[in-house]
Amino acid sequence: MASRARRTPASVLLFSNGFIILWLIIAAFPFFWILWGSFKVELDFFSIADWTNALTGKNTETTYGRPFTGAGYYGAFVTEDFWRNGLNTLIVCFFVVCTSLTIGTLGGYALSRSGFRYTFWLLIIALIFRAMPPATLVAGYLLPFFEWNLWGILPTTIVVLVAINQPFTLWMLHSFFQSIPKELDESAKVDGCTQFQAFRHVIIPVMWPGVITTGLFSFLLAYNDYVVTTVLLSENNRTMVPQIAAFLGTTYTEGNVMFAVAAVVSATAPLFILVLFFQRQIVSGLTAGAVKG
């Protein structure tokens, strides 16, 4: 590798490094810009008079005496009660991840250990389900949920998100369990364990890396969902993403764009921290499906 690197001509090196720097700017700059801008007033955030105002915060200083202000955050969290939506997101994500992992591990384990032909068809059906846009399903939920008074509350949304999550969870855990040697639970069964006991005492202790990776993706799916939460939650129970979408309608008319900006930053920040700690797991999860084919 080193010998090849030494042979790389300067022009190629310059081009590839320049390209990476360009990509880094494209990928990361919007986030730094919005974080910086969220502490300004709207006139600086949308710097129409002079673009340097966005950096120096001239209008912010004339309004508040300082180049930074927490007014957007105050507006979002205190005036608009955005913390409530944050709490709802937390509840939804927690229960979706727990439920989806519990039933997903059982199903994924069974799929990886059963040699019969129907496991193939079940996985194909899961793939088809994975391809279907969630928007096509929501029309089917509304009528029964409304009839049975299930519409608008968090538990319904959690159950629906768990179900929509399952195809992906199954595929991921299936390929993960296949990488755990069959001999492990076979030998436990020879020693007199039932299938469930073998799973409980032999597989569960070694499955955590794969389960954590899958859990991360379940979390992201629940956290990022827009369709299901928008259609199935009532106004009081909204999670963060639909609430921000709802802000757009009201804030553009009231001129409180900074509320929405602060809310966007607040909703993005937890994900930064997540990537910071779990980067390795996320990367391995993304590639796991690909390597298995």
Binding site: W33, Y223, N224, Y226, I244, L248, L271, V275, I282
Partner: peptide, 23 residues
């Protein structure tokens, strides 16, 4: 670089598009 590259993909699509829209 992988850390910064993951960001556009990991944020909720609605928020990512809002950030770009405001820019």
């Amino acid at each position: 670089i992988i850390f910064f590259s993951l960001l556009p993909m990991i944020v909720p699509p609605l928020l990512g598009s809002l950030v770009l829209f405001w820019m």
